[in-house]
Amino acid sequence: MWFVRLLSSSIGKKLIMATSGLLLVLFLMTHAAGNATIFMSSDVFQGYADELHSHPLIVLIFSISLLVLVLCHVAVGLYLFWENRQVSTSRYIITKRVVKNSFASETMPYTGLVVLLFLSVHIFGFTFSPKHVDISVTVKNLLSNFFYSLFYVIAFIALTIHLSHGFWSMLQTFGINHPRYNTLISRLTLGIPLFFLLIFGGVALYFMTGLGANY
């Protein structure tokens, strides 16, 4: 069947990575927009969270979709990692990468796994936090822990590195590569991950440094 043929081909697998990656980035944008309300005040943030959770169906659909996306992205990613390792391990006595700044592309599976670890901690900490405690309080409690926050910051840095290859790579996989737009694309590839780092990392730092002590 055409669908199976597409998805089982080497390009098809990349397309799964790119599509799920794109959707996850879009989700992160809405997430970042929501989290930005933390910087306004605990009330605004709590209001946003309450409003969101007053639509349980939407939350459910989103959660399930996200779960599927993450599973796809992780499973196919790991499968590709495993397949490519078979090809590449101990090929040469001396291996040298010619491309400068190839750190991000070389470490994609590892930064990805760090983000995955972060996700499980994050979901355990917030999504399954006690229902009777206000979310704004949970945020403050958890993130005020220096090491908890440090872990968050490290994970966000990993995410930034991951996306600094991933975003461009996603567009390349979709066939978007044109000299006229490549400067814009490379700026976005730098800008979008940094934007996430600023918002998400900012939240962690806000509490970690004690700025949010009176939250």
């Binding site: 080497s10 390009i11 397949e83 090809v87 590449s88 491309v99 592309s105």
Partner: peptide
Amino acid sequence: MVEQMDKEGFGNCTNAKE
């Protein structure tokens, strides 16, 4: 051509640009 390429045992592109 992609089908043949996959069949020959070449790896998957990860846009490493090498």
